[in-house]
Amino acid sequence: MASAFVVGDIFRNKVTELLENTDSSLPQTLREELQELLDKREIKLSFSTARKLKKYLQDEGHPFYLHELLEDSSLYLPEVVKPPRNPELVARLEKIKAKLANEEYNRITRNVNTQEINRNGILADFGGQVRSVKALLVTVFNFLVTVVATFACSYMGSQYLFTEIAARVISAVIAASVVGLAELYVLVRTMEGELGEP
């Protein structure tokens, strides 16, 4: 907080004139304070001395005012000295920051599986894909074999019922269709069960 003025040349010149004037009724304490100020290299005029000077100028009726003396002056703002930080507090703050950063990192990465980072390059995933394709091929092959075997059995077995080839083919197609639909129904229910599992 400001407590003084850093005065300039106007103040120095006017106060020098005032001090050189021997017939002025300048109080001795004020004269000493002003003389001490002029002897210094950087003049810092305290507010209390400025008030005394202002009162003197008003009482004596001088042709210049205090604001004219302080025209090229500025406020003296002392540099704020920050107290040193407590090392224990700094250590605790660093520990808390590290803990919070670690919790944030864990929260962000909790659903990241390190085994699945490079999906195209891991052999375990390739093996899983091969097993999946193999299971699909086995299922399709099983379906085709079942339908073809049903058709063949129905065609061969229907020779005892029908003498005409067209009737035997129609009965074999109907039997193969029924078995194929039943096989598809079972396949769909199995896939639904696998997909429904958590």
Rank of each mutant, 00 (worst) to 15 (best):
V147R: 02
S158V: 09
F143T: 08
L30K: 06
A172M: 01
P83D: 07
R119F: 09
M191A: 13
T16R: 14
G196A: 12
A166S: 14
R51P: 00
S74G: 08
R119W: 01
L26R: 14
F126I: 00
L66N: 02
G157L: 07
I170S: 05
K134I: 02
A4G: 12
T109Q: 11
A135P: 00
L195V: 10
G127W: 02
E197N: 07
E60N: 13
V15Y: 08
A98T: 05
E60V: 14
R189I: 02
M156L: 11
L100M: 04
N21P: 03
Y155L: 02
E79R: 11
T139Y: 08
F126T: 03
N120D: 05
S171Q: 04
L34F: 08
E33V: 07
I174A: 09
L30N: 10
I174E: 02
N111H: 13
V112G: 02
L34P: 01
P198Q: 10
K97C: 02
K134C: 07
F47Y: 05
S46P: 10
R12I: 02
K55G: 07
D39Y: 00
A98Y: 01
R119A: 06
L77T: 06
S48H: 04
V173I: 15
L45W: 09
E183S: 14
D72W: 07
